[in-house]
Design a protein around this nucleic acid. Structure first.
Lengths: 130, 130, 130, 130
DNA sequence: GTGGTCTAGACCACA
DNA sequence: GTGGTCTAGACCACG
């Protein structure tokens, strides 16, 4: 199933997070959650670059990294597709979230915040985000 | 009350986060959590630089930013102290944690993870970190 | 509209005012007076550094402060531009001059100088400066 | 006539202007305007330091500079007095104000402000300050 | 003693 | 190409 829209992605050019990394992580998550499935065709570099007003090199760099990771595969003359071996197990999904949660835990400890307080705050935020 | 130890700080030189920013955020959290209180004398630039094997200018940059933020105050010729107006309310402490939690919530949603799963994972990580 | 000349700036290396601050204040005034307009590309750090025979880090420090102030914006990998939100109203221009005028007024009062004398002296100086 | 009060001076420790320089300039102006007259005894270093909560070295540095300038004179065993030769002509008084006015003129020019606008603004400020 | 500024020169991340 | 970070080492102003 081809993926026609470049609007899959939402890029914050003002963010401190590099653009290419935003792209990489979004594709990684879309793949892990099954919203992108093995065999899906990715939009071309040029298409994404134009749609998001980015430098094509930036998009290309993201694709290259995703290819090295095994999330995407390059099909000569056909563009990039989601790799057949792309992992989508729940366990992996959770592991993608772990680094951010660990960072939050460290910050909470430095702030000497009570774990229960932190958990209930996080629960509230999770509901707001839903 | 003077602050004698430069071991207040733990720096990860290998991190992608700039050293001066690690220092800024640690002081900000120590102040917000009340571990540094208004009037406390900060260790001198040279002291921290030597203790952490950093260039004095790196430490100085962190101090300058903290002064601009209003967390620290400069006593000319005498060193830096925690500013009298430095905020330390619990509400502020939680707000310092919010951005990271919000980011985690967005990532969880993109991964289509169940909120309860996420919360229990976070609870586990909080215990590990304690 | 790109800004081609680094000769926008005039630096007094002998002054007691730090170079980076001279740069900051000049950009601030050029922006407030409309000589630099939102979207204008600033000369690169290296370009200014070479033109004025300064260390690039000195220029970079000025740019960083201006970015924090919201006068300039960073386009990653592309250089700095004048921020869209940079203020340029006449009211603001006058307010930028006020502190110096207030200081002069206080000094005049301490010297017990007649206001009319002071004003005519200032008028003369304004003509000389023009 | 002895000068008993150290409250002659108002020091802003938070100002960017060095304390010793604030002292120097205030004495200079008080002398130029005749509020301090030749032969007047100045408060002792210790007295000023205690009254204003300053480091005695800071006060001493100011006195030394004023002595070098010829504004004050040291009378062994008697402390500092205002020098007999201390100038108080109106011309000198105005010249003490000139640097600040020149700075204001330069800033006004850089802001491309109309001289008449600047003058009327200054007139207003002078009235407020009176 | 304190912090502030500047230089020269290196390396990195980003587009 | 762009700006960001860091080091090593110097000098200065302040108290």
């Amino acid at each position: 199933m081809p993926t026609h829209t470049a609007s899959l992605f939402s890029i914050a050019t003002g963010s401190s997070e590099p653009i290419y990394r935003q792209l990489v992580e979004q594709v990684r998550r879309l793949s892990a959650s099954g919203q992108l499935r093995p065999g899906d065709e990715m939009p071309s570099v040029r298409e994404i670059a134009q749609a998001l007003a980015l430098n094509p090199m930036t998009v290309s760099k993201a694709y290259s990294l995703l290819e090295m990771e095994g999330v995407l595969a390059r099909r000569r003359g056909l563009g990039m597709v989601v790799a057949e071996s792309a992992p989508a197990q729940p366990a992996d999904r959770a592991s993608l979230l772990r680094p951010t949660l660990e960072r939050a835990a460290v910050e909470a400890r430095q702030l000497e915040l009570d774990p229960d307080t932190v958990l209930s705050l996080f629960a509230t935020i999770l509901k707001e985000t839903k």
